[in-house]
Design a protein around this nucleic acid. Structure first.
Lengths: 159, 159
DNA sequence: GTTATATGGGTGTATATACACGCTAAGGGG
DNA sequence: CCCCTTAGCGTGTATATACACCCATATAAC
């Protein structure tokens, strides 16, 4: 083991000075937490969040849905393909013939409802571990970062 | 346009109550910012962070590098394949015959040095926009989230 | 000595993410 | 009527991410 650090100084998770690296690391870590929590419902947090948004925003086309999620539209198209293959969403026609609306299906609604208690549980656990005020700070900063991406001209869906 | 929101109330970036969704959205947004800033150097922030880590941690095997990055080891293997194809890293033999060490190459070092000014610039811009204290808060919270993933038993590289 | 465990490596599959690019149709100017 | 912009949709390609496995070897347990 040529490069292994000594056991009593693990050199794990060293803090980075790079804001982006920190956020990406946190994103990976928290995604693992939520995916594991949602495991019994057979939904990953990505699919869960898309389904919840579709459920609330009603039948909606991909462009507007991608704006709601601050996600590249073409990324959303691939994500929705999985959801539709699982039978969780449906594509229905709109008044405009070349427009297609995404809607949640009955089984999609059922899947979200099955996942919801697990989501609530992990939300509560995180709030207990980190403190409500810290989480509110975090939400505010995360929102600021999103706004910044607009100011930097790198918003999702610039087309 | 059946579902388009009115122009004066864009319904963009609505805040989510889900901590994970907020972090993931922030991660996407900030990644877009950094990738665009690093564009002239032909490096994305992911590759940049891996190369910087390899540069500082010296020749290192994938298991220990993945611990440093809090990244799944098999994910790192794929990321390193790209870096090696670009000629930015090399794999060298270790004393242990079945161990392989990742090292940065001369051109990898040059690429990092070319990217560094752009990285510094975007770091400075972000600090100016968000405020130093906010960023320090953010770093602390991000680190807490990473620690939590250990406590929740979903650390990267549980094998 | 054989088995069990830990440590080194990698692949297969699935999903997430985004850019570049292309196609189609609606509507506005000339 | 023709052109051009715009708003809808999708694909090709590349990369990022992680889980479930797999193989090989060294070492500890028995």
């Amino acid at each position: 083991m040529t490069t292994k650090p000594p056991i009593d100084s693990p050199a794990k998770n060293p803090p980075s000075v790079c804001i982006c690296v920190n956020v990406r690391r946190a994103s990976r870590a928290i995604t693992r937490i939520y995916d594991k929590a949602l495991e019994p419902s057979n939904l990953k947090v990505t699919q869960f969040s898309v389904l919840v948004t579709v459920m609330h925003a009603g039948p909606i086309n991909t462009t507007n849905l991608s704006r709601l999620l601050n996600l590249d539209r073409t990324t959303l198209v691939r994500n929705l393909k999985c959801a539709e293959q699982s039978g969780y969403t449906e594509t229905i026609a709109a008044s405009n013939p070349r427009e297609r609306l995404i809607a949640i299906s009955a089984s999609g609604r059922k899947a979200v409802e099955a996942a919801m208690p697990h989501w609530r549980a992990v939300q509560r656990q995180l709030r207990d571990h980190l403190g409500r005020e810290h989480l509110e700070q975090f939400a505010v900063l995360a929102a600021s970062l999103e706004k910044l991406s607009g100011e930097f001209g790198v918003d999702a869906n610039t087309d």
